[in-house]
Write a protein that binds this DNA or RNA. Structure first.
Lengths: 233, 233
DNA sequence: CGACCATGGGTTGTTCAACGATCCTGAGCT
DNA sequence: AGCTCAGGATCGTTGAACAACCCATGGTCG
């Protein structure tokens, strides 16, 4: 009965690789050296390559012919794209909350509670993931496995935009109270207000992350120029 | 300058395989035998497997451990899922048509014109693809590469639901006039009416395809029972 | 007669070693 | 300084091999 469908080694390799990427153990831009990774994950290079192809299809890594795969780097343009998707899907979810079941509302509230608990215990990184759980549960209102999976990919890519950046506390603190407000409006059936609140949330969140990306990009080129400067001297 | 980024053999293999699948040269349920396909596509088995993994990520084939990949079969439930996605994305596209450029409206009209031309020349299969081009152009109004690509996958999967089915003429004829109507409402800026028209289109189209799938499924089990009957005798 | 269980062929999953293709770095040259 | 050009490093792809596993065939037993 509990035939936990066994997964191929390639799948497992892809899963552990994905985990390493989204938690920032290998940051954006880092090249994925096949020989080294195959040794570390204890699979053959061919099997590893199948896994990498999967991550590429998910948008977590970019493949360039003859120069291999690197962890995807997210720029301002792509953040905008990611939020275009979020708006499309999440706003629809709010509209469809008319038909939501009690269990689904409970899932929403549970996610917000976890978010709050994580905030109290100061684990700001987990606040971020719990927040995403809330929005994932929100998308679940549509009852579309395809959209659930797609949204999962979007969230993973979005994470690339701010993994390993400074002060995750400041990054995640503002959204807890707003997620809670959206949740309350939803269970109260005040969909119009929830929709407006959600749109404001998405606008602000997008802007924050774009600023973050820009600032990070600037600091990078600054460092690069500094290195060049040292060379010239 | 025109560095048409060369693609790997695995990519090429995936592309030709995808083409074979979506035009119905290998119908749903057909197993993909690695040795045979590798020989036919003139690549090694390892390379072919990388390609198959890509198609699996796109949802065109299903992989089962130790029994290989088969072309995905689309049931009624999955058709509903596909249309849940279409509603989410296409309705949003209509709303965002406020900000559409002239070039985008032209693209819409061009797709409808091609659809009509194909209908006049009796090429009903191409009417189907042109119709999908229209909806693809509609999604393009959102200006999100991510959604464009995702929608492309949705369309490809939807095709699996009716490739090789009887009477493509009856299947595609009704939608031409309705696509045209939606297009006209859009360029006229009458978005509310366009949205309603689109929702009706999606409802009817979904129902038709579900009926088709059900009927096809029934005929299959019928044949299977007939075969069983012969055995018993 | 039907249900159950071996057994073997066929297919997939994975590994390994190899080789050509390509990128990149750095040394040497002008 | 700028350019050319090896050389190494890495990727892309191949072919063969073997283990793991599914499935149909046929035999055995109740």
């Amino acid at each position: 009965m509990s035939d936990t469908d066994a997964v191929s080694s390639a799948q497992q390799a892809a899963n552990t690789l994905r985990e390493m990427v989204v938690v920032g153990r290998i940051g954006p831009g880092t090249p994925l050296r096949e020989a080294a990774l195959a040794a570390e994950l204890d699979v053959s290079r061919n099997t590893l390559r199948e896994g990498i192809r999967l991550l590429a299809a998910e948008g977590l890594v970019e493949q360039h012919l003859y120069s291999g795969a690197v962890v995807a780097t997210i720029g301002a343009q792509q953040v905008r794209d990611l939020y275009a998707v979020r708006r499309t899907i999440e706003i629809r979810a709010v509209q469809l909350s008319v038909y939501a079941s009690d269990a689904q509302f409970v899932a929403l509230e549970k996610a917000v509670d976890e978010e709050a608990a994580a905030a109290r215990s100061g684990d700001w990184q987990f606040v971020g993931t719990a927040g995403m759980h809330f929005h994932q549960a929100l998308v679940g209102l549509i009852r579309s496995p395809l959209l659930d999976e797609f949204f999962g990919r979007i969230v993973a890519q979005l994470r690339l935009a701010y993994v390993g950046m400074s002060s995750e506390a400041d990054l995640h603190r503002p959204w807890l109270v707003r997620d809670r407000r959206i949740c309350e409006l939803l269970v109260a059936g005040r969909r119009e207000e929830a929709s407006l609140e959600l749109e404001r949330y998405l606008d602000d969140s997008e802007q924050l992350i774009i600023d973050l990306v820009r600032q990070h990009h600037a600091s990078l080129t600054e460092k690069r120029q500094a290195r060049q400067g040292l060379r010239v001297i």
